[in-house]
Design a protein around this nucleic acid. Structure first.
Lengths: 225, 225
DNA sequence: TATCTTTCTAAGAGAATTTTAAGATTGCCT
DNA sequence: AGGCAATCTTAAAATTCTCTTAGAAAGATA
């Protein structure tokens, strides 16, 4: 069980982040301000900290510094609205493991989380999900089918990942769109169709061309084999 | 027992929504304004909130924000007349789980409610309803009869779903029409006859051709086998 | 900078679904 | 039985949704 602490004062964002993580199977605790966050972090019970840079009480950078002074070495993912290089550098300098600018798409966020945890050695190399002979390796973001490896672009990979995670369940088009492209994206939802098509085309030679079923007027779903 | 709180100032809409939900087996409470709604929500007794964006006292967005500040984490479905992307973004940003633009057909509304509850883990994955050997799976929107799977269009599925849920009860034609096509639809009510016919035709090969009884001058009903 | 890859746009083809419409049939009432 | 109204049944029209491309734009790589 992977424990995550989310330190974020914006309640909406905190809830979103927490929910996403919980749905993914992480155990999540939340903190609203920097001082409380620092205190909780020191318990040493967390595998990952997700920290906003702008915090009341104690800002994110100082929090991380403080932790290091105390010899704690927890993997950290910085979350912030700022896109400036300066901030990014500052964050990474101080020892954060990765950096994500909001708003972000869910899939992107989860990928970063996994990546940080992996680099920190918190998750082993199991990180794989399956559908028939298809294997997605979440560590290398690679896809293989039987002995063959299948080259997928990032978006294709994310889409397939989401589908496999929800096989046998209908995913509505807007659900997919929000998750992979993000609410803020301005590609229309029809981009989903296009990528479904790309995927089908790449999967077809292996006999999985018809695995993604269209539910007209609703969305798509990865069917039982 | 699933408890829902409907916060909506338009009394007509509030009643309609509440009735629909009650008929579906939800336990429903109502609130007319934002402040009262917030107060009631805080009791923590609800599994789902349905909130209008435009409210007297305290608007929907602020209400949701307020709830989050207090650490409440209730699944939320936003209901509104506005269709703008901006609103959608605002709503979902603030942590609402889904968004429905009025006017809407009942079936669409209920589908969203189920979907939100499911995603929030409030209802399991069982979501199946039965009539004889006929099984409707609400997760995959699939219909099967014994070992066979029966392909239904969306409207056919919705109609059969409604019938099965109300087996042994007479459904008036306009009731069916309102539920599946929505009041705003301008196909005439006779479209119901046509779809009843489609259903009978598809069910006939399995011996369910006469299961939908016509009650002349009133409507239809799915009879005891 | 040049080149290659990935992502997005846009639009027409194609399919499936939904709706219309009209004649045939059935049930009900006098 | 005869007549009226409701329902059934079809087939075709209309509409909506998805597929499929090809190329433009954006981004990454060398």
């Amino acid at each position: 069980m992977m424990r995550v602490l989310v330190i974020e004062d914006d309640s909406a964002l905190r809830k979103i982040v927490s929910t996403i993580l919980e749905e993914e199977g992480y155990e999540v605790d939340q903190s609203i301000d920097g001082k409380e966050g620092l205190f909780m972090s020191q318990s040493g019970m967390y595998d990952l900290l997700i920290i906003d840079l702008m915090l009341p009480g104690l800002d994110g950078i100082s929090l991380i510094k403080e932790l290091h002074v105390k010899g704690m070495n927890v993997p950290t993912l910085i979350l912030t609205a700022k896109d400036s290089v300066a901030d990014k550098v500052k964050g990474l300098d101080v020892g954060a493991d990765d950096y994500l600018v909001k708003p972000f798409a869910t899939e992107e966020f989860l990928a970063r989380v996994r990546s940080v945890l992996r680099r920190a050695g918190k998750i082993g190399l199991e990180g794989k999900i399956f559908y028939g002979e298809i294997v997605l390796d979440t560590n290398s973001m690679q896809c293989s089918i039987g002995k063959n490896s299948l080259k997928l672009t990032k978006k294709e990979y994310e889409l397939l990942y989401y589908l496999i995670q929800n096989q046998e369940k209908i995913l509505m088009r807007d659900q997919i769109y929000d998750r992979i492209w993000g609410i803020e994206s301005d590609a229309g939802e029809s981009i989903v169709d296009v990528y479904i098509h790309y995927l089908r085309k790449k999967l077809a030679p292996f006999g999985y061309g018809d695995s993604i079923r269209t539910i007209r007027g609703v969305g798509y779903m990865l069917t039982e084999e």
